[in-house]
Amino acid sequence: MTESTGGIDMDEDSSGTIKKFAFVNRKAPYGTIYALESLEVVLISAAFDQDVSLVFADDGVYELKKGQATKSVGMKNFSPTYRALEGYDIEKIFVEKESLDARGLTADDLVVPVEVLTSDEIATLLDEQDVVLSF
């Protein structure tokens, strides 16, 4: 997004072609760069007013774990940024139940409200997308 458009007149430019995008997050937050890169792409894509869903599965559910404190390891704690997504009109956040169960986690352990779906439901959701981006 550039300063001059600021996303303000994007609706006219894109002339109503809204696609369904899903971002699938499957990596733990700090061991690799995938989680942070995904989040940045999601924030940028928000400027294009598409139908965006975020899916968290496997170790990706750890990205949303409450209580992250990275001062001692000298890395940026980006978990608070997931709470900003609502302001970017990204409100469809899905987490795979099987992945939570396998890690002893529940939706209450996560920094944002999510919709917990089974693997089958995730499969259906992904099948309905125009574009699936995997991280």
């Binding site: 600021g6 996303g7 400027a47 940026k76 940024t81 709470r83 900003a84 302001g87």
Partner: peptide, 14 residues
């Protein structure tokens, strides 16, 4: 709060 600088339209709304 969020560890990012908001995009312009997010800023105006907020």
């Amino acid at each position: 709060d969020y560890q990012i600088a908001p995009a312009v339209r997010v800023l105006t709304k907020a």
